[in-house]
Simulated scan of single mutants.
Amino acid sequence: MSFLDHLEELRWHIIRSFASIIVFAVLAFVFKSFVFDVVILGPSRPDFFTNQFLCNLSATFNMPVLCINQVQLKFQNINMSGQFTMHIWIAFVAGAIVSFPYIFWEFWRFVKPALYENEVKHSRGAIFAASMLFSLGILFAYYLIAPLSVYFLGNYQVSESVENIINFGSYVSTISSIVLASGVMFELPVFIYFLSKVGLVTASFLKKYRRHAIVVVLALAAIITPPDVISQIMVCLPLIVLYEAGIIIAKRVEKKKKREMES
Rank of each mutant, 00 (worst) to 15 (best):
M1R: 10
S2T: 15
L7G: 04
L10P: 08
W12Q: 14
W12D: 12
H13R: 14
A19P: 02
S20P: 06
I22E: 02
I22Q: 03
I22F: 10
A25C: 03
L27W: 09
F29I: 03
F29Q: 02
F31S: 07
V35I: 14
V38E: 13
P43E: 08
R45N: 10
P46R: 07
F48W: 00
M63V: 15
C67Y: 01
N69W: 06
L73D: 07
F75I: 00
Q76H: 09
N77A: 10
N77Y: 02
S81Q: 14
S81C: 00
S81R: 09
Q83F: 10
T85V: 14
M86S: 15
H87E: 07
V93T: 12
A96Y: 06
P101T: 09
Y102M: 07
I103Q: 01
F107H: 01
R109H: 10
R109Y: 02
F110C: 04
F110W: 04
K112H: 10
P113I: 00
A114G: 11
L115A: 00
E117Q: 13
N118T: 15
V120C: 11
V120T: 13
K121W: 08
K121D: 12
S123Q: 03
R124H: 09
R124F: 04
A126H: 10
A126W: 09
G137A: 02
G137I: 04
L139M: 12
A141F: 06
Y142R: 01
L148M: 15
Y151C: 03
Y151I: 04
F152Y: 15
G154R: 00
S159D: 12
E160S: 15
S161Q: 13
V162R: 13
I166M: 10
F168C: 01
F168P: 00
T174K: 09
T174R: 12
T174A: 09
T174V: 10
I175R: 00
S177E: 08
G183F: 05
V184E: 03
F186D: 01
V190A: 04
S196R: 07
K197W: 01
V198R: 12
G199R: 04
T202Q: 05
S204Q: 15
Y209C: 05
Y209F: 13
R210G: 08
R211H: 12
H212V: 15
A213M: 14
A213D: 06
D228N: 15
Q232L: 03
L237E: 02
L237M: 14
L237W: 05
V241M: 13
E244Q: 06
E244F: 06
G246R: 04
I248Q: 13
A250Y: 05
K251W: 09
K251Y: 10
K251Q: 14
E254T: 07
K257M: 11
